[in-house]
Design a protein around this nucleic acid. Structure first.
Length: 185
DNA sequence: ACTCTGATGTACT
DNA sequence: GTACATCAGAGTA
């Protein structure tokens, strides 16, 4: 898995990859790309205390708090680039994830939900992927849908949202999207 | 199915 | 003071 490349290349390549966090894992079904020239990106103003991990080594986590309540998990790509993990298909540790989320609640169909399900918080900011307990492993080639990003107010039309075609584990459907096949790596 | 709104911390003007 | 890369619950239909 090559992390040191633009986020709009890493983001589709992560669709189908397996994310493992301390015994819980899931197949990535939805991502978004954020780049330094993107007004919606935390890296747009340049390095700050919050976004420091985005300018650190590739292949590490960038974790931030959103709306005072939730954590969001990104994968650092090239410097100033990051990929937001927005949804997963749960694979292992489902009982643990259910305990963290609460019975009957969706586990991982949104960035805040999956961070809670996986137990992600501030302590994971800057942590490198590549240990047995914190890993990102490539998946098979996958058909990837492309659309515009969710929950932002700037650069609304940039086609930087990516999803696994046909997946039921998406935060929202992809309306009338492009579809392209990516090799999972 | 949908729309509306409250909750809450932090970075920024 | 304002703006968030959000979610859950209540209300309407």
């Amino acid at each position: 898995m090559i992390f040191d490349r633009p986020a709009f290349e890493l983001a589709p390549a992560l669709i189908g990859a397996v994310l493992t966090v301390r015994g819980c894992s899931g197949r990535i079904t939805e991502t978004e790309a954020y780049t330094p020239d993107d007004p919606a990106s935390h890296s747009f103003p340049g390095p700050t205390k919050r976004n420091a991990a985005m300018f650190g080594p590739s292949g590490c986590a960038y974790v931030y708090r959103i709306y005072g309540l939730h954590w969001c998990l990104n994968v650092v790509a090239a410097p100033g680039h990051a990929v937001l993990i927005r949804a997963l298909e749960p694979l292992h540790g489902i009982d643990t994830m259910t305990a963290r989320r609460g019975p009957g609640k969706p586990l991982t169909k949104g960035p805040g939900m999956l961070a809670q399900a996986l137990g992600i918080d501030q302590d994971d900011n800057g942590r490198p992927f590549g240990s047995p307990t914190f890993a990102l492993t490539p998946g098979p080639p996958t058909e990837v849908l492309i659309g515009s990003r969710i929950g932002i107010s700037k650069a609304v039309d940039w086609p930087y949202r990516y999803g696994k075609k046909g997946s039921k584990f998406l935060s929202r459907p992809f309306p009338a999207s492009f579809c392209q096949k990516y090799s999972g790596g």
